[in-house]
């Protein structure tokens, strides 16, 4: 193996830095391994020997957090996704891509994975949910430091935003991700999720409480922003000790339901029939017709 010269000089004219690649001959991981014909290990757990009888959500949480959760925790987080995750409307952007893939007779995996990728959106999905987790965590820390919530909100409103979430050249997350909603104003899922939280004794969680306190304060300051389900799930996950990244992995499972439903439904419709556009539905705003230069 060739290594960088200790004097920092190179055989070419380039400065020679300390190469780091040669140290990476092996991949060290505690995440998992497959021992062909013998066993499968996930985060130190022999899956076949230990996970029999466990729920799918327990396996998911093991993969995400590295630990087998309490059964009741898995039940609770499973029930949260049941009520919150899936809106199988093929007009919603991620679902629409899955539906288009079905209508063009692509494969279900392509349609669903493309829909999942589009869930990295700004106006819904992963970005605002992670943003809500970060928001609540930051605000909680500021409150602990003695700041007043009203002042915290005012300070956030005064921050420079590179752009708006809905449109523009440098679109960016809303100032209060997890609050407000495109297309609709309220969120029909909140009451059902709150009933669930009460059933499991999590309705007074620190972050859930803060999420609603922040909503009330926003309303008092004349900002018409209501907590949405994404924000509530972010608070729930924070109360369960999840990081924003762990929330991302967890929530990805909720999109599967609507993506699969919309893709499967489109496959039952005629090919090419998903909201086809007529030529006149293109509203051109560019320059008038002109000729390409000829040499």
């Amino acid at each position: 193996m060739t290594r960088a010269r200790p004097d920092g000089k190179s055989m070419s004219n380039e400065k020679c830095y300390t190469a780091k690649n040669p140290q990476y001959e092996y991949w060290q991981t505690a995440a998992g391994n497959w021992f062909p014909g013998e066993r499968i290990v996930l985060h130190g757990v022999d899956v076949l020997a230990t996970m029999t009888g466990k729920s799918w959500m327990e396996v998911i949480l093991l993969a995400i957090t590295g630990n087998i959760p309490e059964r009741r925790t898995a039940e609770f987080l499973d029930a949260v996704l049941t009520l919150s995750g899936s809106i199988p409307d093929p007009r919603l952007w991620n679902n629409r891509i899955a539906a288009l893939a079905g209508a063009t007779r692509s494969t279900p995996a392509l349609g669903m994975s493309a829909g999942m990728a589009a869930s990295d959106a700004i106006i819904f999905g992963f970005q605002p949910m992670m943003g809500a987790h970060n928001l609540l965590t930051e605000v909680a820390g500021q409150l602990e430091s003695g700041d007043l919530l009203e002042n915290i909100i005012k300070a956030r409103l005064e921050r420079d935003q590179p752009g708006r979430p809905g449109a523009g050249k440098q679109r960016s997350l809303a100032i209060f991700p997890g609050y407000g909603r495109p297309v609709a104003t309220g969120d029909e899922r909140i009451p059902a999720i709150m009933r669930l939280l009460r059933d499991y004794g999590h309705d007074q969680g620190r972050m859930v409480t803060l999420a609603f306190r922040l909503e009330a304060s926003l309303q008092q300051q004349g900002l018409p922003l209501r907590l949405n389900t994404g924000g509530l799930i972010a608070a729930i996950c924070a109360d369960q000790g999840m990081t924003a990244l762990q929330l991302y992995y967890y929530v990805s499972h909720c999109f599967y339901v609507s993506l699969a439903a919309c893709n499967a439904d489109a496959l039952k419709h005629d090919i090419g029939s998903f909201f086809p556009l007529r030529c006149r539905q293109i509203e051109y705003e560019g320059v008038a017709e002109r000729k390409w230069k000829k040499n």
Binding site: N94, A101, T104, L110, G111, D120, F124
Partner: peptide
């Protein structure tokens, strides 16, 4: 339109343009 990443758009184009229509 939803503000997803550039890669999301191209992944979507590939997935939908991959089929039989």
């Amino acid at each position: 339109a939803a503000g997803a990443t550039a890669a999301s758009s191209l992944i979507a184009a590939i997935a939908v343009g991959a089929g039989q229509f």
